[in-house]
Structure formats: structure tokens, C-alpha cells
């Protein structure tokens, strides 16, 4: 197991507390491509945020390499996100002032890699996602699909143990969506990238190894 979840609960406090995740237990194997599916409001995004250390669960454990990540302090979590986790958000979460190349080498820069090295690695990564000829483009000079591929390159450039994606194709047309999903599949096959992807599309099932179904904050199967 590359990641294991034990008794994970997330309750959003409020006037009426929402039990978004009720008691989640599962594991994901290294090299798996998993889809998280379920109705709207079933808790898919909430689960992904907990796994990705973007949020703190109400209780439970998230175990990687034998460590309970929930217990890490903010600095350690931040370092862990940088080194071990990658994210792709629904809308292309790029900085408008950075070129494709700069966006992708930013995480490497944070790791303290030399300039020569980070330019080389980021260029290669952009090549891999089919944007070898868009290195100097700013987000506003690229299509939605291209921006999303830049975001994928940025998420993968540090060779994360797991790539998380929350409805990465929701804002794209069918064709661009297919490019992204095929890219995920390719990365999963070629470099054995572990991927956890939230999706609404029943059709996406054909790309993944396994589907985890969520219903009202509980795993169904």
C-alpha cells in the first residue's frame, strides 16, 4: 500500500454540522490508477483534500511510509506536499504571470535544484505532456486543455508518489478531456505513476484500474 486511510472522518462545523466523510477505510497500491466516483455532495472532493493534506480531517489516520500524515505540523505538511504529492485542480490553477516553463519549474526551484537542472527537467516534462512548443506561453495565451496539461506537468515535475486530480476534465470539451485522460493512462503505464482522480463521467471508468464509490460520506464498494 502506498497510502492507507483508517477511520477517516470529516465534519464541517457550522449551524448544521455536515458529516462529509463518515468513516472511511481503504488503501491504494503503488502504481494504481483509481477513480473516485459518486453523486454530487457525496464527499469526493472532501476525501481528496484530506488525502492531499490540503485540509485536516476531524479524526482518523492517513498513513504513508508508515507515518500518520495527519499528525505532521504545517511546515512538514508543506514539505510533504512539495516532495511527495502532486495536484491537478478542476480549473487550471496556474499563476497568470508565469510562463508554462516557469510554472513547471517552480516546484523544482522550491526544492533548491540548480537553474540548468530545473529548466531541463521542466522542459522535458512539458514535452511529455505534449507542450514542448509552448514553453514561453503565458496562461492567457493557451487553451484550457493546454493550461490543464501545464498544471499536470507542474504536478508531476517533482516525481510525486501520488498524483491527485479533482475532476481535471470538467471544464474541457470531449476532445481535450480525452487527451488528458490518455495522458494519465500513459503516465500510469509508462512510469507507474499512482493516480487518484475524482470524476463524474461514467465513461472514464475505462481508463482506470479501480473505482471507489462514495455515497453520503461512506465508501460503497
Amino acid at each position: 500500500m502506498i497510502i492507507e486511510v483508517k477511520n477517516l472522518k470529516k465534519t464541517y462545523e457550522g449551524r448544521v454540522p455536515t458529516h462529509a466523510l463518515k468513516n472511511i477505510n481503504f488503501g491504494i497500491k503503488k502504481g494504481e490508477f483509481v477513480a473516485l466516483m459518486g453523486r454530487s455532495g457525496s464527499g469526493k472532493s472532501t476525501l481528496l483534500h484530506q488525502l492531499g493534506l490540503l485540509d485536516t480531517p476531524t479524526s482518523g489516520e492517513i498513513i504513508m511510509n508508515g507515518n500518520n500524515l495527519v499528525l505532521l505540523d504545517e511546515k512538514k505538511k508543506s514539505e510533504f506536499r512539495l516532495k511527495e504529492l502532486g495536484y491537478v485542480f478542476q480549473s487550471y490553477a496556474l499563476l497568470p504571470e508565469l510562463t508554462a516553463l516557469e510554472s513547471v519549474y517552480l516546484p523544482l526551484m522550491l526544492l533548491g535544484v540548480t537553474k540548468k537542472e530545473y529548466i531541463k527537467k521542466a522542459s522535458e516534462m512539458l514535452d511529455k505532456v505534449g507542450l514542448g512548443d509552448r514553453l514561453q506561453h503565458l496562461p492567457r495565451e493557451m487553451s484550457g486543455g493546454e493550461q490543464q496539461r501545464v498544471a499536470i506537468a507542474r504536478a508531476l515535475v517533482n516525481s510525486p508518489a501520488i498524483l491527485f486530480a479533482d475532476e481535471p476534465t470538467a471544464n474541457l470539451d470531449t476532445e481535450s478531456s480525452e487527451v488528458i485522460l490518455k495522458l494519465f493512462k500513459k503516465l500510469n503505464k509508462e512510469i507507474g505513476q499512482t493516480i487518484v482522480m475524482v470524476t463524474h463521467e461514467p465513461d472514464d471508468k475505462k481508463y482506470v484500474d479501480r473505482v471507489i464509490w462514495l455515497k453520503d460520506g461512506v465508501i460503497e464498494s
Binding site: L54, K75, S78, F80, L85, L95, P96, L106, L110
Partner: peptide, 16 residues
């Protein structure tokens, strides 16, 4: 605001 969140999500420290 959103960019700051994204930068933190990819592992940038608050101090940076």
C-alpha cells in the same frame, strides 16, 4: 488569494 492557495498546495512555505 487563489494563487496563494495554489502555491501553498504545491508545497510553498507561507514565509516564502
Amino acid at each position: 488569494r487563489r494563487q496563494i492557495g495554489i502555491l501553498k498546495a504545491i508545497g510553498m512555505r507561507e514565509s516564502t
